[in-house]
Design a protein around this nucleic acid. Structure first.
Lengths: 343, 343
DNA sequence: TAGAACATTGACAGCGTTGTCATTTTAACT
DNA sequence: AGTTAAAATGACAACGCTGTCAATGTTCTA
């Protein structure tokens, strides 16, 4: 019933070490031997036992995905991406949600690592931006790949996957500008997040390039939540929209949805009286009314590349994956929540 | 740096087997010995190595969570619930998203099980309802716990956690009835899902108890998706709402949101002209406008109990967790999408 | 064609636990 | 106190694999 490396070895007529070499794709196995062994592997439908591999080897076959993110869509996408690569490479994934504010994060990490020695970690924002965590991991000698907001200029392409929020925000803002909007509000997330400052700078750069003067009063800092989107829209639009805002950039889809909600309460027609845009293209940007214009962020693809990058680091010479993309730029998706100014 | 069971044994002045007994909470360890060992465990901050335990032991310390569900909120909640129990009990979780239509599910399962022998599986709908899968698992001798839609009458309380959708639908429908609605439409999911028939029967029972005659034309079968909610509302409400529908029961929040969207397109005011209710109380039932009246389903708690049930089965005598709840009834949450009939 | 250099394979220990079974200690009886 | 049963502990192999290093095969050089 249970087939081990020995069974394969016996059937192939080689030592178990040779089978081990084959399944680990080690060099210096004759092509012919390789084929014989693979035949045996296939006829027996052999699956190497992960526990044994992790115990015996110096390297491990489990990777961790660490996140502290309230956005279910985001987490699922990241998870699926990493998982799909793991499956292909025979790794297993242990997920590790955590709460940065908990404080005992360090202990938490250590426990996780002791329990199952890890090949490496995929870190997602906002954890991936926390220097204290990075330092800790470096100190512990743990491999990791960070997914974070940034631009191609930042060249740590061995451990980072960048999401170019700057460019995406620039594009969305340009879209709004080309529609004729001049007074564009920005509902940003909290400034602790790198994505917030990146998106903000993209927004500002676009305005500048279109010779529109900046106005800090058009910027509202929230927390990337639906509620703060509601609050932000109320704050910015005020009683009678004194700032003559005709478009609102949501820091993410949730905030945009919140703004949509608030507009409704205030009796504002979207997009006739106000354009609203989101960010990320999560499923519910398609489930609002009207549907949100947003920037599509391919989280599943991003996380797949993050996993590939991790495997490349982890397995050194055995894996020279060359086609890893390390910078992703979310792309504009125009839907019904944005339109030309009527003014 | 790396502390093993031997280090603990040495410090405690006992054999490693005794330490093993202590960390596994085996009986027949003297209280005094137990304390000494635990002290050593704590001062050394010992964490048993999972790979070694899985390899050496007959039982395993990893559980699997299997799902084929497009709802990110649901999956995350289930995951977190199971994970929190795993953490407490020292288990690790491997998640296994799958696509039932893929066909090669069986192979898939077998591979997963071979790679890391599993203590057991937590199955979520719709997989948990698939008899072919259950049979397969029984045949393979794999422990599992199923989370599925059902009522207390069904008494497989050793392997099943029931979500009483029937009662919840009854309650929601009653809520609508008490508001004065008489012609209530139902946007149900596809009938393949047990939750669909359960919710449908609850709806029908409530109507019956209020002496309202049934009308199959008030029922639209969709797929639990936003889009099918849109379609359903259009179909039911038609050109001029010929059926005089004043309330619409969504099979889940997404369908309700879809119905909300469609109503908007048709210029129908919610809740003045039409009440709409959801099911599940997922985050976006709070992010629609108006917010959805729905039935709160505590998925995280449900999955925690599922995990506990699994552990009880798995560890037999060593674990006699008695406070496991095996039936959960989602509870009505009244928000702004439902109101009295104006007719 | 001998010998060196290199490529390929194998024997065996060891990874950190748990299971088995033997041994020692304690408790419970005459 | 002496015996016996039961409880508590320990010694050691085994889990299925990989790392190390030695052994064998192959190819190349002169």
């Amino acid at each position: 019933m249970k087939v081990t490396i020995n069974d394969v070895a016996k059937l192939a007529g080689v030592s178990m070490k040779t089978v081990s070499r084959v399944i680990n794709k080690e060099p210096s196995v004759r092509k012919k031997t390789y084929d014989i062994v693979m035949d045996a592997v296939n006829t027996l439908n052999y699956q190497p036992n992960l526990a044994a591999r992790n115990l015996a080897g110096t390297s491990s076959f489990t990777v961790g995905l660490v996140y502290d993110n309230p956005n279910a869509y985001y987490v699922i996408d990241m998870q699926n991406g990493v998982l799909s690569r793991c499956k292909e490479e025979g790794y297993e994934l242990v997920i590790h949600p955590c709460n940065y504010l908990d404080g005992n994060m360090e202990e938490d990490f250590k426990t996780m690592i002791k329990r199952s020695r890890l090949a490496g970690l995929v870190l997602t924002p906002p954890l991936s931006e926390q220097n204290s965590i990075i330092d800790m991991l470096d100190e512990m000698g743990i491999h990791y790949v960070r997914v974070l907001s940034g631009r191609p200029t930042e060249e740590d392409q061995d451990t980072c996957i960048y999401v170019n929020d700057y460019a995406a925000a620039y594009e969305i803002t340009s879209h709004l500008l080309s529609l004729g909007h001049k007074s564009i509000g920005f509902l940003c997330g909290d400034k602790e997040h790198k994505s917030t400052t990146e998106r903000l700078e993209g927004y500002q750069a676009a305005l500048k390039d279109h010779s529109i003067s900046m106005n800090d009063e058009l910027i509202y800092e929230g927390q990337y939540s639906f509620e703060s989107g509601v609050e932000g829209a109320k704050a910015l639009l005020g009683e009678n929209n004194p700032k003559n805002i005709t478009a609102l950039l949501g820091g993410n889809d949730e905030m945009a949805a919140g703004a949509l909600f608030a507009s409704r309460l205030m009796g504002i027609e979207i997009p006739q009286q106000l354009s609203i845009t989101g960010f990320e293209d999560s499923p519910f940007s398609r489930q609002t009314w009207p549907k949100l214009t947003t920037a599509h962020q391919a989280n599943d693809v991003i996380s797949q590349h993050a996993a590939r990058l991790l495997f490349r680091k982890t397995r050194g010479a055995r894996n020279q994956d060359k086609d890893i993309i390390t910078t992703f730029t979310p792309s504009l998706v125009v839907r019904e929540s944005s339109g030309p100014t009527t003014a």
